[in-house]
């Protein structure tokens, strides 16, 4: 870990030197090409990324899902599928519907991952419901990620800036990471035959944009931001007194995905 920080520091220094010498031409903004579509005239959604050099060793991001604000519209699921052209029946993110009766029985469903929204109440239940809510799910971005631990070829890994991503050029498609993920956010893409998962839209974040699902959420139930920025919404929430939980704490994975309003029955 120390070693990688050192290397990162060196990378950064040489980068700055190059910039000062003018060997890297143009604006730093152009370091990452937008890929087909121009980004310049679209305002940045996360401040302090586009106009600065990306120092991987100093980045800290958090994702917060506010269950008390989720209306189960499934915009996030649709956006996610469109952003990545996710093949049918595989889900980088999904929204579950929870119902709790007066005997503490929990009924959960998630038709087509919430992609089509929730148009109908559950008709198979004939019990009075005490509590009901939606729970969006996505990658927990564990700080001690089981998927990267078990990947036999180093094809899935935690970047120095804290994102767990998949190198689809090295993945052999063994499926071990899928078994290891306690949250079942991974799947084997039937088209590319490699493991795939939510990346918190790493490519968007690097361009100063919010993850696709956060951008489309109409109620602000999904929040993403920089923890180093004291003014960001996530910083404020995480430094406040509200009850913040993570999923499957007992797995010891130390997620960076936090929940507000998650009842104890949420798994």
């Amino acid at each position: 870990m120390k070693n990688s920080t050192k290397i990162l520091d060196e990378d950064r220094r040489s980068f700055i030197k190059k910039v000062l010498k003018g060997t890297i031409a143009g604006s730093l903004l152009l370091v990452i090409p937008a890929g087909g579509n121009a980004l310049e005239d679209i305002p940045a959604q996360i401040p302090g990324i586009r106009d600065k050099e990306w120092d991987m060793s100093k980045k800290r991001f958090a994702f917060i899902v506010d269950i008390t604000r989720c209306i189960g519209c499934g915009s996030c699921c649709v956006a996610d599928k469109r952003e990545y052209n996710v093949p049918d029946h595989n889900y980088r993110t999904w929204v579950e519907r929870y119902l709790k009766d007066f005997d503490d029985n929990i009924y959960v469903d998630c038709p087509n991952g919430g992609l089509d929204g929730y148009q109908k109440p559950r008709e198979d239940l004939d019990v009075p419901i005490r509590d009901t809510f939606f729970v969006p799910k996505l990658c927990n971005m564990c700080k001690d990620a089981p998927c990267t631990q078990v990947c036999p070829v180093g094809a899935t890994f935690t970047t120095p800036d804290g994102f767990v991503i998949v190198d689809s050029k090295r993945c052999v498609g063994c499926g071990y990471c899928i078994q290891a993920c306690p949250y079942s956010v991974r799947f084997l893409n039937p088209v590319t035959k490699t493991a795939e998962k939510c990346t918190w839209c790493y490519h968007r974040v690097r361009k100063g944009m919010l993850p696709a699902c956060v951008n489309v959420c109409p109620t602000g139930a999904r929040k993403f931001g920089d923890l180093n920025d004291k003014e960001s919404e996530v910083s404020k929430i995480l430094s406040g007194p509200g009850v913040i939980t993570v999923l499957k704490k007992e797995m010891g994975t130390d997620p960076s995905l936090y929940y507000i309003g998650a009842r104890r029955e949420v798994i």
């Binding site: 959604q45 180093g154 890994f157």
Partner: peptide, 24 residues
């Protein structure tokens, strides 16, 4: 940086965006 291909980070970062937000 660790037991993985460091270039994969930039490859992922360079993935083109498909949803371009309302201002576009």
């Amino acid at each position: 940086y660790g037991h993985y291909r460091a270039d994969a980070i930039m490859e992922e970062a360079n993935r083109p965006m498909r949803l371009m937000t309302n201002p576009s």
